[in-house]
């Protein structure tokens, strides 16, 4: 079986301890939480950190908190917790949709939201979800914290705004009224990375028009996490089949998918459009259902 090259291991006892270790070891250090992206890369010897800083004991980063008009998710929150959270499902069904199709149950028992975002794989689902929801992330270093919009967090494949000696500690998601969201993914089998995926989050104004629209895409290009043109089209418009189809087309036109084992570029572009329309349709239906049920959202 494949085994990693040698490294040194440190288990952090607190966030401060983790930051001190990361600072001390600099470039050669990697944070490990669930490990399901990092360890396979290390076994294939594509990643060779000199130090692993294990943050699994930092239970202070494992939380889901509704705090005023935002949901705060600790970076060490496991996929399974997100999947099973009723609060998450109520306010952000896009998360629940996505978590259902992220990897598989044993992996979801270990994998964390922070790990998923920091891996910054262009096929990764939660980056698209967070993009659709216009999330912010909190990055902490020894010098303090900074809050970064998720659109600025992602710096290209496998690159994020987290610098040397820093770590992601929290994800913040704005709670909106009259909102609905949904995630659509095509995979070749359960547990596969996306062939393509699209997430949509809508919030409606009092008059039923779209007030806020977010669309996040996965696996359709290195820089296509965020479908801006489609979002712009939607703002201020009345939800309709035609509008969602047009938004889908824009999302498809805007992305730069590459052909691989999972599919051709043409197909992925088609999926970006098709799945964006589908996600918008379901997001709008959920928003409407929420308004109808008088859920106060």
């Amino acid at each position: 079986m494949q085994v990693p090259a040698s490294f040194d291991y440190r288990r952090a006892e607190s966030v401060d301890d983790a930051l001190a270790l990361l600072e001390r070891y600099g470039d050669g250090a990697r944070v490990i939480a669930g490990g399901h992206s990092l360890l396979p890369m290390m076994k294939l010897r594509l990643a060779r950190p000199e130090y692993l800083v294990d943050i699994n004991d930092l239970t202070e980063l494992d939380y889901l908190r509704l705090d005023g008009d935002r949901l705060r998710i600790g970076a060490l929150t496991r996929h399974r917790k997100l999947l099973e959270s009723e609060v998450v499902e109520h306010f952000f069904p896009i998360f629940t949709d996505a978590e259902r199709v992220i990897a598989d149950p044993p992996v979801r028992n270990r994998g964390t939201i922070g790990g998923s975002l920091c891996q910054a794989d262009p096929s990764e689902d939660l980056s698209a979800v967070c993009s659709a929801l216009a999330a912010e992330v909190v990055i902490r270093g020894r010098g303090g914290e900074r809050v970064v919009p998720v659109h600025e967090f992602y710096r290209g494949p496998y690159e994020t705004a987290v610098g040397v000696g820093e770590m992601l500690v929290e994800v913040r998601i704005p709670v909106r009224h009259r909102a609905g969201s949904a995630y659509e993914k095509v995979e070749r089998k359960a547990g596969d990375w996306a062939v393509a995926a699209a997430g949509a989050a809508l919030a409606l104004a009092q008059d039923g028009r779209i007030e806020v629209a977010g669309i996040g895409l996965a696996a359709v290009g290195a820089d296509a996490v965020h479908a801006r043109a489609a979002e712009e089209l939607l703002r201020g418009r009345e939800p309709s089949e035609e509008l969602f189809a047009e938004a889908g087309r824009r999302a498809g036109d805007d992305c730069e998918p590459v052909a691989d084992n999972r599919g051709t570029a043409e197909y992925k572009r088609h999926l970006a459009a098709e799945l964006t329309s589908r996600a918008l349709r379901r997001a709008a239906a959920r928003a409407a259902a929420g308004v109808e049920a008088g859920a106060g959202v």
């Binding site: 999972r262 599919g263 051709t264």
Partner: peptide, 8 residues
Amino acid sequence: LTPSRVWH
């Protein structure tokens, strides 16, 4: 017959 191949 992956999704991509079926669609094509």
